[in-house]
């Protein structure tokens, strides 16, 4: 049995230790917000946080998680209990198109804003460059990040996993 802490809960799992975190989360824990895109850590659709740091869950074996805490898009905020400022900014700026890559984009954006409350264009480019969007929503993602940054500064909030 492998035990992991995910979105504040402990899960006991009977899985092969080499199984990538992505598949355990999607199939065993049944949280499907994190997406499969490439399987090689090239596109960022599977991005989750491990102790607050963005990781590519499609190439992270479950055995490598240990006692570190995993956060997925479902742990950030939701429509019923309230959206995270970054999620709200994504709606305000009408960012998604097909939406498939957006969980990964949002997780990467939150990690950026946690460490840099007011990033420049270049800093946003650098942080987001590992996340592919095939619909080409990059311009709006950038606006969404700036909007979230403004919202946080106006409301004197510090961006974290919990909003």
């Amino acid at each position: 049995m492998i035990s992991i802490k995910i979105n504040g809960q402990i899960k006991e799992l009977d899985v092969d230790p080499s199984t990538p975190l992505l598949w355990v989360v999607r199939e065993n824990i049944e949280l499907t917000g994190s997406k499969f895109g490439c399987g090689l850590g090239l596109c960022g659709a599977c991005t989750m946080h491990m102790d607050g740091v963005p990781i590519r869950s499609c190439i992270t074996p479950i055995a490598a998680v240990g006692d570190k805490e995993i956060t997925t898009i479902e742990g950030i905020g939701n429509l019923n209990d309230g959206l995270h400022p970054v999620q709200q900014a994504w709606i305000d700026e009408q960012v998604p198109q097909c939406g498939y890559c957006q969980s990964g984009q949002i997780m990467t954006a939150i990690a950026l804003l946690k460490s840099n409350a007011s990033p420049s264009d270049e800093e946003i480019d650098k942080a987001m460059n590992g996340n592919i969007c095939r619909c080409g929503t990059y311009g709006r993602i950038k606006k969404g990040i700036k909007k979230a940054s403004e919202l946080a500064i106006i409301n004197n909030l510090k961006i974290s996993e919990n909003g």
Binding site: L31, K35, W90, P96
Partner: peptide
């Protein structure tokens, strides 16, 4: 340009795709 119907579920991971 009213807010799109399909966006809220696409920001919190609840939108269901084929996969």
């Amino acid at each position: 340009s009213p807010s799109r119907f399909d966006l809220p579920v696409k920001v919190d991971g609840s939108a269901k795709y084929g996969i």
